[in-house]
């Protein structure tokens, strides 16, 4: 468990709404960006186990796991859609759980097992979930797709492990991979092309495959 992060909200000057601002035409007006300061070592060296392979990294401490993958390891299958944990395009699997890799600093993952879309399959040998997305046209532009696929695999595992969701009605019964459960659990992965109905069909197909 990571320690809670302490931070202080600093309102940027331009957000301090005052009535005078409306009539302040032609008055020199200043917007101060939040200053940054760095304390301690700025870079760290550590090892990630990415798709089964140990990869040593020496990166700026501010580097997210997402950027470590995309920019430093050049594993660009994991996508940056928002960089703020709002879209799910950067979903990867870390130590058996799906996370938004943009919300996690790479330096926090010393020794962690990271599985990305590249670790699931290749065009010549697809993972069953990749095959299911292909079969059901579960994508259009393809940009959210790796995140959807990584999430979808984890969703089925979470259901098999009987991890309840917001829509689980009976916490004592075995959870089934129903439409409602899948939709709820996939809702952190936005697809602006709107392939949701096809993705649902794909996940059902993959759910029927032996694991």
């Amino acid at each position: 468990m990571s320690p809670p992060i302490r931070f202080e909200m600093r309102r940027r000057t331009f957000l301090v709404g005052t009535a005078s601002a409306v009539v302040a035409a032609n008055i020199p007006w200043r917007a101060n960006a939040q200053p940054t300061s760095l304390a301690g070592p700025e870079r760290s060296t550590f090892t990630l186990v990415v798709n089964g392979e140990p990869r040593e990294l020496a990166v700026d401490n501010r580097t997210t796991l997402l950027d470590a993958l995309r920019e430093h390891l050049q594993l660009t299958g994991t996508k940056k859609g928002c960089d703020h944990g709002q879209c799910g395009a950067c979903t990867v699997n870390v130590n058996g759980e799906r996370i938004n890799s943009c919300l996690s600093l790479a330096v926090m993952h010393q020794g962690d097992e990271v599985t990305t879309i590249e670790g699931l399959g290749t065009p010549q040998q697809l993972d069953p979930m990749q095959q299911a997305f292909f079969d059901h046209d579960g994508f259009q532009c393809g940009y959210c797709t790796p995140g959807q696929i990584c999430s979808a695999k984890a969703v089925l595992e979470e259901i098999r492990d009987n991890v309840p969701s917001h829509v689980t009605q009976d916490l004592t019964a075995r959870i089934e991979a129903t439409d409602e459960e899948i939709r709820e659990r996939m809702s952190g992965n936005i697809c602006r092309c709107g392939a949701y109905a096809n993705i649902l069909e794909a996940i059902h197909q993959a759910a029927g495959e032996p694991t």
Binding site: A21, V22, V23, A24, A25, N26, I27, P28, W29, R30, A31, N32, A33, Q34, P35, T36, D60, R62, T63, D67, E71
Partner: peptide, 21 residues
């Protein structure tokens, strides 16, 4: 040279405006 450096430096830029209605 890196994304993190560019982003951090961008936040250091201070701009003075004349603001129109």
């Amino acid at each position: 040279e890196t994304f993190e450096q560019a982003r951090a430096a961008a936040a250091l830029i201070e701009t003075t405006y004349e603001r129109d209605a």
